[in-house]
């Protein structure tokens, strides 16, 4: 497997804060599959800017509250 993208996220935390929203519910709300939400939460996939904004807006927070840049050595 390749190096994971240097983008961290708190999608799982925000799902929990949003009343234990399921991955399938989040995926349906932002227009991706449950497997894509799983890949995002595991850090295997960095979503497009559009999907990142959709996720942040759904949780009513800023994009940088959900996604961050991890400096790598």
């Amino acid at each position: 497997m390749g190096k994971p993208p240097p983008i961290s996220n708190r999608v799982r935390l925000h799902r929990m804060l949003a009343g234990d929203m399921t991955q399938a519910e989040l995926g349906e709300a932002v227009g991706v599959t449950r497997h894509t939400i799983i890949a995002i939460e595991q850090g295997r996939y960095s979503p497009s800017l559009e999907t990142a904004f959709r996720i942040a807006r759904l949780f009513d927070v800023g994009v940088e509250d959900v996604f961050g840049w991890e400096e790598q050595p």
């Binding site: 991706v32 599959t33 894509t36 996939y45």
Partner: peptide
């Protein structure tokens, strides 16, 4: 799932 179009990752 069969009816849904592929998402951005797919």
């Amino acid at each position: 799932e069969a009816e849904a179009p592929a998402d951005e990752r797919e």
